[in-house]
């Protein structure tokens, strides 16, 4: 069945409001996008919605008790809670370098969890 709905593109900070006509999973028409990424977004959002996920993991011996981490690529939206539960189990040791893989192939999705910053060892 053909339906038309409004979707907000989250690809960039502009946040264009798109008028999308689709047939379940097939996109028939997209209007109102400021660039071509709008259509790509709609197609992904209908078939396989994904989000960048940022959270923290525990770190021992660092200048802070938490290390910020993020997904190397947008992660399947329905599995975000599962991913967060997984991250809560992790504790790593300082020092850590930015971009270091904290958890490889998270939930078998082929996406790594990376350190968002250096975490030097606590001194003194």
């Amino acid at each position: 069945m053909e339906t038309t709905e409004k979707m907000i593109c989250i690809t960039c900070p502009k946040g264009c409001t798109l008028e999308v006509t689709h047939d379940g999973q097939t996109v028939l028409k997209v209007e109102g996008s400021g660039c071509k990424r709008g259509k790509d977004y709609v197609e992904r959002e209908l078939k396989d919605p994904r989000r960048m996920v940022a959270s923290t993991v525990r770190v021992r011996g660092g200048t802070h008790p938490l290390l910020p981490v993020y997904t190397s690529a947008p992660f399947p939206k329905p599995r975000i809670q599962e991913l967060l539960a997984e991250l809560r189990k992790i504790e790593i040791k300082a020092p850590v370098k930015m971009g270091e893989v904290v958890l490889a192939d998270a939930l078998g999705e082929g996406i790594d969890i990376l350190a968002s910053r250096d975490m030097p060892r606590m001194t003194g």
Partner: peptide, 19 residues
């Protein structure tokens, strides 16, 4: 600001704040 969304204009990348 550990969330993503930084650097889209300057680096053309979607970085978390600390990065």
């Amino acid at each position: 600001c550990i969330h993503n969304g930084f650097g889209v204009e300057i680096f053309k990348e979607d970085l978390p704040g600390p990065s």
